[in-house]
Amino acid sequence: MSRWKSSFLLLIVTGLSIAQTESQLVSDDVRRVARHISCQCGSCSEDANCMMSAGQCGFCKPARAKIWKMQQAGLSDQAVADAFVQEYGAKIYRADPNAYGWVVPYSALALGTLVVVWFVRRYHRPAQAAEAPAQTDETLGRYRDQIEQDLAHLD
C-alpha cells in the first residue's frame, strides 16, 4: 500500500512544474537527503564517494530537483529516500557511516598513546642511576678544564 502511495506522490510532484532554482536545489534541506542518494550517471557510479549534493551531471541535477519537489510536497527525508530506493533499487541508498568511522582513528590514537608511554618508560633512566657514574665523572674530570674554557666563550 505504502508503495503505491509513494509512487503516486512521485507522480504528482513530477507532474507539478514548480519553477525551482539551482539555489534551492543546493539548499541544506536538499543536500541532507541528496547525500544519501548515490549518483547513477554511469561515469561515476563506481566511485565510493560521489558528490551528489553538489554534482552537475545529468543524474545529479534532476535528482536534486526531484528531492526538492518531494520536500515541497511535504515528504519526510526517509520517504524521499524510500521513493528513490523504490525506483532504482537498494543500491542507490547510501547509509550513514557506522561507528567504525570514528572508533578506528581514536583507537589508533589510544594505541599510539600506549606505545609512547611504553617507549618513555623503556628509555627512561634517571640520571643518578646512569651506569658507572664514577667512571663518567672521572672522564669529566679529565676534560673539565677544556670544557670550562670552551664554555667561557659561549654567549
Binding site: 547525500r35 544519501h36 564517494n49 547509509a95 567504525y100 568511522g101
Partner: peptide, 20 residues
C-alpha cells in the same frame, strides 16, 4: 581512514555510505 572509509566499507560490507 576517513578518505578510504567509503571504499573500505563498500568492500567489506557491500554497503555504500556517505561521508560529508
Amino acid at each position: 581512514w576517513g578518505t578510504l572509509f567509503p571504499v573500505i566499507s563498500e568492500a567489506v560490507s557491500k554497503e555504500k555510505i556517505s561521508l560529508d
